[in-house]
């Protein structure tokens, strides 16, 4: 994230992916959308996140796409479906639906993956604060991101603690299922206890003070940020005008 792109202001990157998402949704066909994937991959290379990008993308998207093709082309019965064997058909319409649908999924999900890989949550929270979003909202986002790894750690400790009082975590389904409550129960009760204390800790840091908040963390928009913003807006306007004229 310490790349040139990583250090851009979050709203510039956000405007950029919004543009991509809008174009992906409204440009007809599927070639443009699949090109977007290549384009995002190139930007990932440039941001130094290409490997991470591919790893994340491959984990969830391809399987979904394959299933969509199987469903649309071979299983769903369309007007032009021709039987191949038993319940398996082939449909040209299904193929077209799959191509347009999956191309949009690929384009939009790859831009979202890229966005979160090159934007610190901290920066997003800061940008939201600066744009006047309620302190409560930004507080909840920041605290969720910080808490999840802590809770995962805690759940490991709890699992150890319960194992050492004899709770089995291996064996048949019934044994394993029975372990669930002793594993999650202490986590719920202790986090509730911790919430009570955290309220005190936050009030001790003037959480409910009526004053206008300031921030010691600072992120400034650079010239490049403005260029991106203006560029994105221009592209969108040009596209809209072009579509209307058609």
């Amino acid at each position: 994230m310490d790349s040139r792109i990583g250090n851009l202001y979050p709203s510039s990157k956000f405007t950029f992916i919004i543009l991509i998402i809008l174009l992906s949704m409204f440009v007809p066909g599927f070639i443009f959308q699949y090109m977007i994937f290549l384009f995002i991959f190139l930007i990932s290379l440039f941001s130094g996140t290409a490997i991470k990008f591919l790893a994340t993308f491959m984990k969830s998207i391809p399987i979904l796409i394959i299933f969509i093709f199987i469903f649309q082309v071979f299983l769903i019965v369309n007007e032009d479906s021709q039987q191949i064997w038993a319940f398996i058909h082939f449909s040209q319409i299904g193929l077209m639906t799959s191509l347009t649908m999956t191309s949009k999924i690929v384009a939009i999900s790859s831009s979202i993956i890229w966005f979160f890989q090159v934007t610190r949550v901290k920066d997003i929270v800061y940008a939201l604060e600066q744009s006047g979003v309620s302190q409560k909202v930004t507080f909840v986002i920041a605290s969720t991101i910080q808490l999840i790894p802590q809770m995962l750690n805690l759940s490991r400790t709890i699992a150890d603690a319960q194992k050492s009082r004899g709770i089995e975590t291996e064996g048949n389904l019934f044994v394993r299922a029975k372990a669930f409550i002793p594993m999650i129960g202490p986590l719920v009760l202790s986090s509730i206890q911790q919430i009570e204390e955290r309220v005190l800790a936050l009030e001790s840091r003037a959480f409910s003070s009526k004053a206008k908040k300031t921030s010691i963390y600072e992120l400034k928009k650079q010239k490049f940020d403005y260029i991106i913003m203006i560029f994105c807006i221009l592209v969108l306007i040009v596209y809209i005008v072009w579509r209307i004229k058609l």
């Binding site: 004053a211 908040k213 300031t214 010691i216 600072e218």
Partner: peptide, 9 residues
Amino acid sequence: GMENIGVSR
């Protein structure tokens, strides 16, 4: 805490 009471940066 200082952010919450609006102390200047």
